[in-house]
Simulated scan of single mutants.
Amino acid sequence: MKTILSFLCSLLITLSSIAQRQTENVILVTTDGLRWQEMFGGADSSLLFDPTYTSDTAKLIKQFWANTPEERRQKLFPFFWSTIAKQGQLYGNRWNGSKMNISNTYWFSYPGYNEILSGFADERINSNDKIDNPNTTVFEFINNQPKYKGKVASYATWDVVPHIINEKRTGIPVNAGHEPVASPNPREQLLNDIQDKLPSPWGETRQDFITYYMAKEYIQKNKPKVFFLSFDETDDFAHAGKYDQYLLTANMVDKFIADLWTYLQSQPEYKGKTTILLTTDHGRGHTPKARWKDHGTKTPDCFQIWMGALGPDTPAKGEMQHAEVLFQNQIAQTLAKALGLHFTCEHPVGEAIQTVFK
């Protein structure tokens, strides 16, 4: 009898939790190769004051420098620290005892995005080649649920993302690289023209501002319920050794996220019904300082990453402090849990981060 009563109580608690869930939409945002050191400490003095990496040190010091890490991170990421840190949660401040790591052994982009999206550190994914992902991602799983069929989409800067999501197999629309918007409205046509005529410093990869404004137009027109927005230029500028541009781009991404959140809260389909998760595919080096440009297995500590969460079902706990080490492979299940789903497929999936939701 006690066993039956215990089961019934557990079932009632579970059903109550699902009934009270307010999240109906989820947006995942990534910015490639953004270090946790800048997220939690702001501008790095060893790089900001070095003309090798910062061409106009006086300008950047005025814009991003302050005496304390708390002041510096507020300057660099005003939305993260004025909104997410107050209304949501931030993970990965290793100075504060919060650790989040990559599970895969490669520590670069395709393996990282596969781990984020599939919840599985697949050792077969060992390059950035444009190979269609053999793994099921959480987006494919959600898109196969009747309630969400045709309501999942992605816009990305990096032209490999359509292969990571496996657009061909899944049918999930992914606009990336220099792909123009089909059947554009006047604003999208302008963005198509800018993309076509403005030289990109990254070859086959466009600039993040084009990705963002195309993505926002898509959201306004189509009202997707699950969306993946992926930026890339933080990684591009870091590889180029341009710390000033890396900071400016990180600050720009913060502004994009703030603008998107403001828009979402102005729309009845999204206001009070949307959870946003934010993270990166890999970290970067830090010692010696020149290694900040790099990542991969030859770069110590670039398996260290961060994550943010904001939404109606996420308790406002701010900077998380705990001894438990979290992993990149937990993000996919956490995303599914936001919608009251449990992500299952042909491969193992990391468990959800329990503290993200009530």
Rank of each mutant, 00 (worst) to 15 (best):
P348S: 10
F343H: 02
A352T: 10
M252S: 07
T68L: 09
I84Y: 05
F7L: 14
Q245P: 04
P69L: 06
E71N: 06
A19K: 14
F77T: 03
E188P: 03
N144K: 07
T344I: 13
N93L: 10
V174W: 07
W202D: 02
A240K: 13
R284K: 05
L310M: 05
T14A: 11
S154C: 08
W306Y: 06
C345N: 13
P69V: 09
K271N: 07
S118D: 04
K223R: 08
E217A: 07
L278F: 10
T211E: 10
G283Y: 11
Q89E: 03
D313R: 12
Q87I: 10
H347F: 14
L76M: 05
L90H: 03
A309H: 08
N144T: 04
K255I: 13
L76S: 01
M1L: 14
L198S: 07
S118F: 10
F108P: 00
R73C: 01
T275K: 05
Q87P: 05
N251S: 04
P78E: 04
T170E: 05
T355G: 08
G92M: 13
Y270C: 00
Q145R: 06
Q195F: 14
T57L: 04
K147Y: 11
A258H: 11
K149F: 07
F256A: 00
T14S: 09
R94I: 13
